[in-house]
Write a protein that binds this DNA or RNA. Sequence first.
DNA 1: GGCTGCCTTACCGATTCATTACAAATCCCA
DNA 2: TGGGATTTGTAATGAATCGGTAAGGCAGCC
Lengths: 236, 236
Amino acid sequence: MGNMMAKPKILVVEDEASIRKIVQTYLESAGFSVTCVDNGRDALTLALSNPPDLVVLDLNLPGMDGMEVAARLRESSDVYILMLTARGEEADRVAGLRLGADDYLTKPFSPREMVARVEAILRRQRDVGGSRQDHTLRFAHLVIDLDRHEAVVAERPLDLTVTEFQVLWALAASAGRVLTRDQLLTQVWGSSFYGNDRVVDVYVGQVRRKLQEQSDAPMIETIRGIGYKFVDPKQT
Amino acid sequence: MGNMMAKPKILVVEDEASIRKIVQTYLESAGFSVTCVDNGRDALTLALSNPPDLVVLDLNLPGMDGMEVAARLRESSDVYILMLTARGEEADRVAGLRLGADDYLTKPFSPREMVARVEAILRRQRDVGGSRQDHTLRFAHLVIDLDRHEAVVAERPLDLTVTEFQVLWALAASAGRVLTRDQLLTQVWGSSFYGNDRVVDVYVGQVRRKLQEQSDAPMIETIRGIGYKFVDPKQT
DNA sequence: GGCTGCCTTACCGATTCATTACAAATCCCA
DNA sequence: TGGGATTTGTAATGAATCGGTAAGGCAGCC
């Protein structure tokens, strides 16, 4: 789908231009939004004004040491940190971990592995937050279950694509309230979607069609000039 | 565990003093009650006299091996275990340990990550409602026994490798709910796996093939764009 | 050396995506 | 009330993405 979620932002802090360039290239082609700086001071400034999701941080920096940068970053936020170091002493490794680096690569490293590490760190971040709630929306004839990823109308399962499902979920979760196209775009397509908002109309249309194939209650209303609204037919 | 409000007790078994210290510090500041030992024998004694809620266990211990400690712990109790291993530990042992541990991390690991994992394991325990007693999953045509490490479809045993078994177990244990590739990676391959998530597809494919050689009910559904879901054919 | 199991890679077909263009509906004001 | 302007519905389309799977490299083990 291009991008359902915003591109994770990554800040690369590395003084050696050649390495910096490689890291940037690989990360960008892996779909990340990358910013580079070559010293610790700029890193801190930038991290404050525009917090990244993860920092790739060289340990050996001119001026402010990588360790200190890490410590400072951690003071003010909980960014994830991937440390880069020269082939190194045990002492460094331990100290690096104590300061809370989330992973660690020794130079020379394979760029692909570096990307893999970055992805793994971000992946974990997403996973751990999962305390279970009831992820189910229930209406008169419609039940939407996020965990099963299943929507059922009048006992019949709907065959929805991911995007269609998300559109339906977004609307149903705000049942009774109007959602503008922009709100739907943000909720479903993510805040960094630069496409045409007519895509919302197309998907609403598709969801409507599939809903009506199974049940004739029109559950998604068009609010002209504004957006769409889900209404539970039994209610109202 | 009794009281949810009581600090969970954690036993750390690690021979390297520096790592032990870091682990202890981080866990304590996360609000756990921590005890440390540096060898397997003490670990077992202590675990018997004062059973912890979770054990953080190094795989490479002098004297009694971490694997053996895990096995002994499991014999007498249901403690949760978080394994620590060195990177590049032989694939085989790592595969084996997945069966005994609830999660594992490869060194060098991020202390924050470690704490997050510990919390996740304990939370999972609460969510499921306590004991991990049922080491057997039963469905219409499929029975999976974790202790015997055996899966039987329509009376016929399945010849699964360790990884295949784990994948099937993970899916079946969440029967009806979708698991993303990331979730499967974490549950089966551990939280520090830096590979490609397509490996999930490959293994799901293999399990499917073996299942269908014995029974024609398709039990693993693909949820395009999300992941996979186990469905009991008799149900639903 | 042959076996087995793990993980990666690459290819291909099928599905899904976002855009576009045009038709239909609605609005608004003369 | 009519007609032009605006908004929405939707079919069609090429491009992008996704998932199945065969093949192969690698490592440990007998």
